[in-house]
Design a protein around this nucleic acid. Structure first.
Length: 560
DNA sequence: CAGCTGACTTAGTACTATATCT
DNA sequence: AGATATAGTACTAAGTCAGCTG
């Protein structure tokens, strides 16, 4: 790994991201191999030997058959439509009904392969691992300016069936195989230009040093660009990350003024201004995302702040003894449900009532506002300020405050309070996860262990009592041993109880997203220094690499 | 000047490796 | 030593936001 101090290096002029960039190009997935003769696809009960392209797509479906979504109407229709496009004319004339398709043998073969891979011997697994490492060494690195850097995603995404999140209208569509002819390479003129795979050529080789990507292609399902980019531990990404937190810290210095301003704007004569003020209030108070408009029918129906519709909120003059309560219920990014009942200030409440007047389901709550207008306003208040900066700012400041409030002495308890602070942020940002499949079981296991340890502790205590009675002096060997046993039991019990609390509180909350994207790492590094906690207790290797810049520059007295 | 596109960050989940337990 | 639980990684979808374009 290169040793460098990025804040001491020269800065390029505006927009220039590098002077030299060399890499090997992306790594392509292996070509499709036809099925063995004894694995057959059946249509209407009769075996049919499919053409190679049709067979490949059939296998994509067969591989997913354990998933519930292959039973969904939308998924099946999209799949069947796209599959038929890959068929020969003859196949297309024969295969007219997905329900008459029998992928059973293909499915069984796939499961067998998965099983076989799992059962490989240690040696075979090692061979695979080494082969993988070789690919990483060859394709996973590049040279950017003076540094050898890891690439984040150097592998071309393999073909398969698209599965969006939630109720996605395009689920089941064929995500096509990417050829070198689809790929644009970006590198510097004076570097060794990557070789396309034999018999192929690149779509284009360009030398654009105002962008950070090494290769790109257009994905066929949504028509969007995909990029090969650097790993998070790279200098380029680190610098950007640092900048992000510096902008958020700058917001700290003017957030009071901005809050005063939008409180004032709540009274504006301009409807647009008032809507902007309410939206900003939500973004600031609830850490909502900006909420860009989305093309209807192209993606799942999700919203953010500016794209909220009237059916996403319910107004309660009083609720559970609180006044002016707004009940939010909508699907946000990744179709994660946002549900929250929040008391708001009167002026916001009155404005919301006004915005909802004469509107019906499906109408925008903020019909005079969009994210461009909002961000334009924000950038006039502070350079670099956009809606998402509030999320970063509020997340980081919350962590700092919580850590202050939850100070504790025991190391284990220290970590628990760190996690609690982290959790407060995750809740603010609505970072959820599916409860782990094994959650109930593993919780029960842990409880059983706690119970048995408690019994052990009781026993150990009794033995200690006995030993005290029998002891001839305080240095009696048996007495000392008994004391130690009790102590050990107590420590282990505490450890397990802390673990149980932590795990229970974490059941449906994902801590990693905020740790990775929202919490200024310098807060955590400083906390570790002050609390004398090893950094690796809260940051794994990947995180320590990503936040190398913060680890290097942060003193114990850092304040966000 | 709205709509589109490109570039980049943020996100949850499935898979894999490692640690811990029996 | 093998089984199981947990942590970490890979993957790629889904956002944000600015600048371009017709």
């Amino acid at each position: 790994l290169d040793i460098y101090t990025l804040w001491e290096e020269e800065k390029y002029e505006d927009g220039i991201k590098w002077k030299f960039l060399e890499h090997k190009g992306p790594y392509f997935p292996p070509e499709y191999q036809t099925l063995p003769d004894d694995v057959k696809f059946y249509y209407n009960g009769k075996p049919v030997k499919l053409s190679l392209p049709a067979e490949e797509v059939a296998l994509f479906f067969a591989q997913m058959m354990d998933h519930e979504y292959t039973t969904k109407e939308v998924f099946r229709n999209n799949f069947f439509r796209d599959w038929r496009k890959e068929m020969t004319l003859e196949e297309r004339q024969l295969i007219m009904d997905l329900n008459k398709c029998d992928f059973g043998e293909l499915h069984a073969m796939h499961k067998q392969k998965v099983e076989a891979r799992k059962n490989l011997s240690k040696e075979e697994k090692l061979v695979n691992k080494e082969a993988n490492q070789k690919i990483v060494d060859e394709y996973g690195c590049c040279v950017l300016d003076h540094h050898r850097e890891r690439i984040g995603n150097f592998k071309i995404e393999p073909p398969g069936l698209f599965r969006g999140r939630g109720d996605h209208p395009k689920q089941g569509m064929l995500k096509k195989r990417i050829q070198p002819e689809d790929v644009i390479i970006n590198c510097s003129k004076d570097s060794r230009i990557p070789e396309p795979p034999a018999g192929h050529r690149w779509k284009e080789v360009r030398h654009d040093n105002t962008v950070t990507w090494l290769a790109s292609w257009t994905e066929n399902v949504q028509g969007s660009c995909k990029y090969v980019m650097l790993n998070a531990n790279s200098k380029l990404k680190g610098e950007k990350d640092w900048e992000k937190y510096e902008v958020a810290r700058k917001l700290k210095t003017c957030v009071d003024a901005i809050r005063a301003q939008y409180q004032e704007d709540l009274k504006s004569k301009q409807m647009g201004t008032r809507q902007r003020a309410v939206a900003l209030y939500f973004i600031d108070k609830l850490a909502l995302r900006a909420g860009n408009e989305k093309e209807e029918g192209e993606t799942a129906d999700t919203v953010g702040c500016c794209s909220l519709r009237v059916e996403h909120i319910t107004l309660h003059d009083t609720l559970d003894g609180q006044k002016c309560v707004v009940e939010f219920d909508f699907l946000g990014k990744d179709c994660i449900r946002y549900y929250n009942k929040v008391p708001v200030i009167k002026r916001v409440f009155k404005n919301l009532k006004l915005f909802m007047e004469n509107k019906q389901e499906g109408d925008d709550l903020f019909d005079r506002l969009n994210t461009q207008m909002l961000n334009k306003h924000l950038s006039s208040l502070m350079p670099g300020l956009t809606a998402k900066v509030f999320r970063t700012y509020n997340a980081s400041i919350t962590l700092q405050q919580q850590l202050k409030e939850l100070r504790n002495s025991e190391c284990l308890v220290k970590l628990l309070s760190y996690n609690r602070a982290n959790r407060a942020v995750a809740i603010l940002c609505n970072h959820q996860r599916a409860p782990p499949k094994t959650f109930e079981q593993s919780m029960a296991n842990l409880q059983a262990k706690i119970d048995s340890r408690k019994e052990q502790l009781d026993l150990a205590k009794k033995e200690l009592k006995q030993a005290k009675k029998e002891a001839k002096g305080s240095s009696d060997n048996k007495l000392l041993m008994s004391k130690k046993a009790v102590q050990r039991c107590e420590e282990q019990l505490l450890k397990m109880e802390v673990q149980a609390t932590d795990r229970e509180e974490n059941k449906q909350i994902a801590l990693s997203t905020s740790k990775l994207n929202y919490l200024d790492p310098r807060i955590s590094v400083a906390w570790c220094k002050n609390m004398e906690v090893q950094l690796d207790k809260i940051y794994n290797k990947t995180l320590r690499d990503k936040f190398a810049w913060a680890i290097d520059m942060t003193e114990h007295d850092f304040v966000f």
